[in-house]
């Protein structure tokens, strides 16, 4: 929701190079630059990260909780996608 504080942005922080960006919260800002500076002041006051993404909340499309069942259903009956589905002879050790 946009109001006198500017639109909402979602903030993602990468703790260290090589690690995934993780959502850490949101904030209000009027443009990209301000969003980035606010994110730095709000979410990395103690070296919590070395890289930041800011994304306008309105640009995010999310799955809806009511559809969890049918939406993720295709993954439910495919146990053969997991390594434990397969029998490997003990004799060869770890694979």
């Amino acid at each position: 929701m946009s109001d006198s504080q500017g639109p909402i942005w979602e903030v993602f922080v990468q703790k260290k190079a090589g690690q995934p960006f993780v959502h850490c919260g949101s904030l209000h800002a009027f443009d990209k630059e301000m969003a980035l500076q606010n994110a730095r002041d709000l979410y990395t006051r103690r070296n919590e990260g070395m890289s930041l993404w800011v994304v306008p909340s309105a640009a995010i499309t999310a799955s809806s909780p009511e559809d969890i069942g049918s939406f993720f259903e295709p993954a439910n009956d495919k146990v053969y996608r997991h390594p434990t589905f397969y029998q490997i002879p003990d004799a060869i050790g770890h694979m």
Binding site: M1, D3, I8, G25, L27, D41, L42, R45
Partner: peptide, 17 residues
């Protein structure tokens, strides 16, 4: 900062700043 984290948490419930 704590105030801001909390305001945005409240805003996820459909109220505005």
């Amino acid at each position: 900062g704590h105030g801001l984290y909390l305001y945005t948490a409240a805003e996820t419930l459909g109220t505005s700043r």
